[in-house]
Design a protein around this nucleic acid. Structure first.
Lengths: 178, 178
DNA sequence: CAACGATTCGTACACTCGTACGCATGGGAT
DNA sequence: ATCCCATGCGTACGAGTGTACGAATCGTTG
C-alpha cells in the first residue's frame, strides 16, 4: 500500500468497480470487492462514494457511455447504400459472441433498473442512446422498434444458449424496416 | 406457531417464496424472509429446500407455469379472423398496466438467469413457452421474432417509464407479421 | 403398542456487508 | 513557514445472510 496522494484515485476506483461488475455482476458489487480490486483500503472507497449506489451509478454511467459511443461508431461505419438489415444482423452477431460479456453486463443493468430507482435513468439513457444512433437511418418509431427487437433477440440467445441464427435475424429486421 | 405436522408445508413455503419475490425481487429472497412470510420457523424452510437455489427454482417454476397458462388462454381467446396485431398490442398493454408487477417479475427471472445458471432453464422454458403459444398462429420463426419484439417493447416501457403507445406497438407488430 | 423415520423447531456458527468515525498525512494557500 | 482541510487509512459495529445440527414431536408401519 503506502500509495498516498493519488490524484486519480477516484477514477481508479470507478475502473475497479467496472471490473468487479463485469466479473461478478451488479449483485456482486461491494465496497470491499472494489477496494480489493483497486488495491486501496476500504475507507477510500467510502470516502469518494458516500453510498454504494453512488459508486454503482458512476460505474454504470461510464460503462454506458463507452457502450454506445462504440455502437454509434459501428453504425456510422455502415455505408449509406448497404443493406441495413444485413449489417445490423452482423453487428448483433458480433455483440453476442465476441462481446458476450459486455452484452450480459448491459442486460444486468436493465435488471437492476427494474428494481432500483437510482439506476433507472441510466438504463433509460442506454435505450434512448441506441435509438438516437439508429434514428437518422430509419426514423424514430422504427428505431425504437429495432432496438426492442434486437434486445429481445439478444435476450433469447443469451438465455436459451441457442446459437445465433444470423439469417433469421436478418429476415426479421428486414421486415421491421418495411 | 404450534402448527406442527402441516402436510402442505412445502407448498405453503413455495407460495410464501413467490410472495417474497414479488414484493422484493429475486435479490430479496432469503430463507428468513420466506420463513416469516409463511409463518414457519427458519429450520423448516431449510429442511424442505436444502439450498436457497433449490427454493428459488421451485418458486420460479411455479410462477412460470401459471404465467403462460394464462398467456396461452388469452391468445386462444383471440378469434381466428381478428387482427392479430391489434389483439397482441392490446394484450401487451394490459400486461404492462394491470399486471405490471407480474411483468417486472418475469423480466427479473430473465435477467437473473443471465448470471445464475440454475435459473437459466426456467427462463428458457418461459421464452419457448411463449413461442409455442404463438406458433400455431404465425409459424415458428415469426413467433420467435414476435416474442423478442414484445419483450423488447416491454423492457423499454418498464425501464424508461414512458407511456405505452398502443398504436405504435400495433404498427410494429403488424410489420413483423408481414 | 412399540419403534422407526419423517418432519418440526430453535439455536448457533461463521461469514459478508454497509456505514461510521477518529486519527494520520501532506499539498497548497496564505 | 505555517496552517487548514481535502484526502487517506484502519478499525469497529450492528445487521443480515446461508447453513448445520441436535433435540423434540408425531404419523405410520410392523
Amino acid at each position: 500500500m503506502a500509495r498516498r496522494y493519488d490524484p486519480e484515485r477516484r477514477q481508479r476506483i470507478i475502473d475497479a468497480a467496472i471490473q468487479v461488475v463485469g466479473e461478478r455482476g451488479i449483485a456482486g458489487l461491494s465496497h470491499r470487492a472494489v477496494a480489493a480490486a483497486a488495491d486501496v483500503p476500504l475507507g477510500s472507497t467510502t470516502y469518494h462514494f458516500a453510498t454504494l449506489d453512488e459508486l454503482l451509478v458512476a460505474a454504470l454511467r461510464q460503462i454506458n457511455t463507452a457502450l454506445f459511443e462504440d455502437f454509434g461508431r459501428r453504425v456510422e461505419r455502415i455505408a449509406p447504400d448497404a443493406d441495413l438489415a444485413v449489417e445490423l444482423a452482423d453487428l448483433v452477431g458480433e455483440l453476442l459472441t465476441d462481446q458476450r460479456d459486455r452484452s450480459v453486463l448491459e442486460y444486468d443493468i436493465y435488471l437492476t433498473a427494474l428494481r432500483r430507482a437510482p439506476v433507472r435513468p441510466i438504463a433509460a439513457e442506454s435505450v434512448d442512446g441506441m435509438v438516437d444512433v439508429l434514428t437518422p437511418r430509419t426514423g424514430r418509431a422504427t428505431a425504437q422498434a429495432l432496438v426492442a427487437l434486437i434486445d429481445g433477440i439478444s435476450l433469447q440467445i443469451l438465455l436459451t444458449g441457442r446459437a445465433y441464427d444470423r439469417e433469421q435475424a436478418r429476415a426479421m429486421i428486414a421486415r421491421l424496416l418495411g
